[in-house]
């Protein structure tokens, strides 16, 4: 693998492209053929292909190339059949799985040979059609959220330190109460009290600020649901209408990842 230091960036970027492809496929399925959507998808696939190749993941690069070719064909013909959309959804799943394997062990990327469109299908062997969908729902839900571009452990460390400061503040307040009675000068007593209060507010602000940095909109979780609802609808042959509200509500990244 070339550029091992960029593996995290590669995986995040690739995940973003797959999310975009999922959303575009849902849109194609709902509203029918749209050349602009397909061109945008081709742009994402081209970047994903190029990045995979540059990282040294040649098998994935070739696989994405076959997906790209299938989509180019749809653009040339001016139509996107339900069968093609279904196979492209499958291809997004195959690629996500490949990325998960790469994440586990970047030095042993999966071999996707024979899983391209040569045999007319983009899904992995033995997993074409709706039968594959149930298995794939579980791992889709484990997807990570968008990265905060700071090492998360550093934010964790800062939050721990802020927590220590809060404990220290409580201790100082208690000591302050006892000490104030022993300070003879009234103005000095007041100044001491005000300083303690100000420090308390500053520490609370610091703690809240760090916690806010770790927050992400809940929409990150909801983004996975339209694709899942679509797959379930197909698998169970039932109409599903999904309505998400409150996507802008912010929660801690650790909570989002757990969801």
């Amino acid at each position: 693998m070339d550029y091992p230091e960029l593996i995290r960036d590669y995986l995040d970027d690739a995940g973003g492209h797959l999310d975009m492809l999922d959303a575009s496929l849902l849109s194609l399925e709902r509203s029918g053929y749209n050349a602009d959507i397909i061109r945008n998808m081709l742009g994402s696939l081209h970047t994903l292909k190029g990045n995979s190749g540059m990282m040294g993941f040649e098998s994935l690069q070739r696989y994405v190339h076959t997906v790209e070719e299938s989509l180019k064909e749809a653009l040339d013909k001016g139509t996107a059949s339900d069968d093609l959309i279904d196979r492209l959804f499958g291809a997004v799943n195959v690629t996500r799985k490949a990325l998960q394997e790469i994440e586990k062990n970047p030095t042993a990327p999966p071999d996707l040979t024979g899983k391209g469109s040569a045999a007319g299908g983009l899904a992995p062997d033995g997993q074409s059609g709706q039968g594959r969908q149930e298995n794939e729902l579980s791992w889709r839900l484990r997807g990570k959220t968008e990265t905060i571009k700071v090492d998360f452990t550093r934010l964790d460390d800062l939050l721990n330190l802020a927590g220590e400061l809060v404990i220290l503040r409580t201790r100082l307040n208690r000591i302050g109460e006892r000490t104030r009675a022993e300070i003879a000068t009234k103005s000095l007593r007041n100044e001491f009290k005000e300083s303690l209060e100000l420090m308390g507010k500053t520490i609370a602000g610091l703690q809240e600020g760090i916690m806010r940095v770790r927050m992400l909109p809940e929409g990150h979780v909801f983004r996975k649901f339209p694709r899942m609802a679509r797959d379930l609808s197909k698998a169970l042959r039932k109409e599903v209408r999904l309505v998400c509200e409150g996507e802008e509500t912010e929660v801690d990244k650790t909570v989002i990842d757990a969801l």
């Binding site: 230091e5 960029l6 540059m54």
Partner: peptide, 13 residues
């Protein structure tokens, strides 16, 4: 280049 990742790779070189 339209890929931010590629920018990072070239930077390393």
């Amino acid at each position: 280049d339209d890929s931010k990742l590629i920018h990072q790779m070239y930077r390393l070189v």
